[in-house]
């Protein structure tokens, strides 16, 4: 263990090159990214993972800083995004986890993956359903976040209407199948699940060229 960790530190100290312990070819093979794109994303990962603690791992504070330009403050969306990236549930996002999660956001990723990711994002309590209380909590969060106020009456109307459309079996919660049917009817709800930037990461992070191991 110590030897591996030590080698990883050596890898960082001796050169800014891509850590040899990350299997770029496998990551590229298992994702919509080419090897050069994975290398370019490694440049982004390095930047994000050293913004507060320089340990080549993305901590929740670093994710918050990247997305909201502030390292502090609680937010249920941030918690869910972090949890979904952190596949191993060890409190940090590793490079492989970063690539896995970003793969879902690639413009060419299958829509089923985007639908599934969004469902897991909104299933705050991870019960396998999006429940009314969860939707109320998320709406309250966005209203607070954006300093918007809505009357309780209007808020309930919006949530009632949403459930009337999405909850086809009227059991008060949205199943994954209901969610799928609902977003296929309202595809703009998946807008956040696609990052056009991911089609052009080698241009966004051209410094990968100094560290590349292959020529795509």
């Amino acid at each position: 263990f110590f030897s591996t960790v030590g080698q990883c530190f050596d890898c960082r100290q001796n050169s800014p090159r891509t850590c040899q312990y990350v299997d770029l070819a496998r990551l590229a093979h298992d994702s919509p990214f080419s090897v050069n794109e994975v290398e370019a994303l490694y440049e982004l990962f390095k930047k994000l993972s050293c913004s507060i603690i320089d340990d080549m791992l993305i901590h929740k504070e670093e994710l918050r800083l990247a997305l909201f330009q502030a390292p502090y403050g609680e937010n249920i969306f941030l918690d869910r995004v972090f949890d979904l990236f952190d596949e191993k549930k060890n409190g940090v996002i590793e490079f492989e986890e970063f690539i896995h999660a970003l793969s879902v956001f690639h413009p060419n990723a299958p829509i089923e993956e985007k639908i599934d990711f969004a469902f897991r994002l909104y299933d705050l309590r991870q019960t396998g359903f999006i429940e009314r209380e969860e939707v109320q909590q998320m709406v309250a969060t966005i209203l607070m976040e954006s300093d918007m106020t809505l009357s309780d009456e209007l808020l309930n109307l919006i949530i009632d209407k949403t459930f009337a459309d999405a909850d086809s079996d009227k059991d008060g919660k949205i199943s994954k199948a209901e969610w799928k049917a609902y977003v296929l009817k309202h595809p703009s709800l998946l807008k956040n699940m696609t990052l056009p930037y991911l089609k052009d990461v080698t241009t966004a992070f051209p410094s990968f060229i100094f560290n590349t191991e292959v020529e795509d």
Binding site: Y122, N192, Y197, A204
Partner: peptide, 29 residues
């Protein structure tokens, strides 16, 4: 019918406005 209409307001459209759900922040620093 069947496609998004700008007149439809639903809870998930509101929720999707959260800046924490917009991962383009990664690329805009």
């Amino acid at each position: 019918k069947g496609s998004d209409s700008p007149t439809i307001i639903n809870a998930f459209q509101l929720i999707g406005m959260s800046s924490f759900l917009d991962l383009s922040g990664f690329f805009e620093q």
